[in-house]
Design a protein around this nucleic acid. Structure first.
Lengths: 366, 366
DNA sequence: ATTAGCACTCCGAACAAAAGAGTGCTAATT
DNA sequence: AATTAGCACTCTTTTGTTCGGAGTGCTAAT
């Protein structure tokens, strides 16, 4: 499907691939001689030099300075990722590792994601991220109110994604277990399935009328529900394995590293990027392709975790632009497959909508 | 209380303090001339040199190489922190910042700690950490079971520290809301206040007998309680503001940085250290004082958050050994005070046991 | 006990030279 | 017309050398 003519001769492709591979491996610019040695090509270094000059003119390569070898440009990486990456076959050891570690974490989605990103970082030797994207479509599928003492109770809510969130309520209003029981019944009747902006005044008034003379408790509790829903909208992101970045020479420059770490701290940019992505395949964002300008020399590869057609999470890898895409893609593919299986097994309640076969159509992060 | 004779003359102290201050400020070795200029001393540089030589002999100073200035040793820092730090007065702006940001996060302890460590990092310009230490003494003060579908329900537990944890249960056993209601009543009767190792077989059998012919559900649910308790034992730690470290020259050496980041990733060492600390004052761990060997060139300052005599969390700062202790100590002091107030206001249910005045007795992390 | 003075040590910046790697171009070859 | 060998050229990186500055330790004088 993608071996069509992209305006590049077969030989140019081979050379481009060789350069990217070599650069991924070594990190430095790649010269014509090196390619000749590590590639079976029936031509001489001079020919390769000519081809390289053309590839540079076409925008696939760059030259750090006049007499250095060539380095893939962003466009070069993009082409490489889209059509040249070979499929990396995971070793059985790696597959076993994924199975074991994930099986052990049969907990909530948060923990699975965390474990997965950790594992991804281990397997690939880059930095892993676990993301719960902002989802404004989340609703609550079950309410429960737990009485603690006279003016103090807990709101527990099960979300449509199966997560459980809770919040203490201290309204200063006296409550009884019986009141809470009636209120939670009313909530379960009237609020289930609604997202934050669907909770309208008429609905609230209906609940208040159902509560009769105990209506005073409704307001503060609804407010807590709001807070809870908006917390879910927040999104969250966790990073693991930052130390791994240090082994790559591109981050031995403190400036580069500081930029990247700053971005990882801020989180919003990456969360935005992931939350706005609608492709549920693997996404590869290279350097300045995204508006997250800060990642100049880096690349972000991530895979959303989809459940019932909704993106409930994502795992990803951040590393130097010259990362081992084959391995990263395979790892994320494998992990996400396992996660999909697990949450499917966990939550049969909503009728499975499995991930579906994923082909090699890696989305563009633009 | 600590101006007693430590074997150091007043002048030696002044010189030592001057050296540490200067080194904290500048980062480099400090020479005799510099001290003479920035300190009102009635002696000459030669005298200072002599004193410095003696201080070195006593172990308070070190010389990077033969003709460089002096640098404080670990012992020097320790002495400085214990008896020489001046009290840094927080500006009203800083105090206001603490108040505002914490007030906004009137959520659960986790979030408060996270916000606090973030803030600490901001105010001090070092790296902040938020810690929930391993606490094996935690027990559950309230149970609730939420029915979702025939073989799927949720266990919600309110811990003795006020946190709410939940776990899905899919035992493959059919349950009804009524069964769950009875079971949670029985749990609340029999399990409240028990830590993991206090849940003994007789107790389980009593619950089973109370459940009568529905006893089949007890086993799997108890197992879930166990899992939940042991998760609470785990401890957790979050780091914020790693990027700030990069501005300090000691971490421009990639090796140093990698070591520190590795330690921050692993988390166990620091968690152990904090969990084993019984002092509830501010603790200062300098370099290799602790078994966390990796922190050779760094220092960790942390303050446990105590509630009802139990350590429920901690906030801390990690930075270069030559950190601005005065500011760090003041910041942590201020933050922890606010947090103590907040959780006291939140949880009056257990009868307040406020933190108590904290004096300047910074514990030793040995 | 303190101080002035001085020789000595060591580090780091600045500069120069050499080595290396790789290209672009030209002219010859297939 | 495409390919190739050869060579001059460019730019970076490494290495060596020098030199000034900062700071000490010691000695002799106060």
């Amino acid at each position: 499907m993608s071996s069509a003519n992209h305006g590049l001769s077969e030989r140019k492709k081979q050379i481009l691939k060789a350069i990217v591979d070599a650069h991924i491996e070594g990190g430095g610019p790649v010269g014509s001689k090196y390619i000749l040695q590590n590639q079976q090509l029936t031509c001489s270094s001079a020919t390769i030099r000519n081809e390289m000059a053309e590839l540079e003119e076409m925008g696939y390569l760059e030259q750090p300075h006049a007499s250095a070898g060539r380095v893939p440009s962003e466009l070069g990486y993009r082409f490489y990722v889209d059509s040249l990456v070979e499929h990396y076959a995971m070793t059985t050891a790696e597959i076993a590792q994924i199975n074991n570690l994930l099986k052990a974490k049969m907990g909530e989605l948060d923990q699975i994601l965390l474990a997965a990103s950790n594992l991804a970082s281990n397997l690939t030797n880059y930095t892993g991220i676990a993301i719960k994207p902002r989802i404004s479509t989340v609703s609550i599928s079950k309410f429960e109110l737990i009485y603690l003492e006279e003016d103090h109770y807990i709101l527990v809510a099960v979300t449509s994604t199966g997560a459980v969130k809770s919040k203490h309520v201290r309204g200063g209003i006296s409550v009884t277990p019986a009141m809470l029981y009636r209120l939670s019944a009313s909530f379960n009747q009237n609020l289930v399935g609604l997202s934050a902006d669907q909770i309208t005044l008429p609905i609230i008034m209906r609940i208040e009328s159902e509560m009769g003379e105990d209506a005073g408790i409704v307001g503060v509790t609804i407010k807590t529900v709001y807070g809870l829903l908006s917390e879910l909208d927040q999104g969250e992101m966790r990073v693991s394995g930052i130390n791994r970045l240090l082994q790559y020479p591109e981050y031995s420059d403190v400036g580069q590293l500081q930029e990247l770490l700053g971005t990882l701290e801020k989180k919003e940019d990456i969360l935005d990027l992931v939350s706005r992505t609608e492709s549920d395949g693997i996404n590869v964002v290279i350097g300045s392709e995204s508006e997250v300008k800060v990642m100049n020399n880096s690349a972000l590869v991530f895979k959303p975790i989809v459940q019932d057609g909704k993106t409930v999470g994502a795992i990803g890898i951040i590393g130097p632009r010259r990362m081992d895409y084959a391995k990263v893609l395979a790892t994320l593919e494998g992990l996400s497959g396992n996660i999909a299986n697990m949450i499917q097994a966990n939550n049969q309640l909503n009728g499975g909508n499995p991930d579906g076969g994923n082909e090699n159509n890696y989305g563009i992060g633009k």
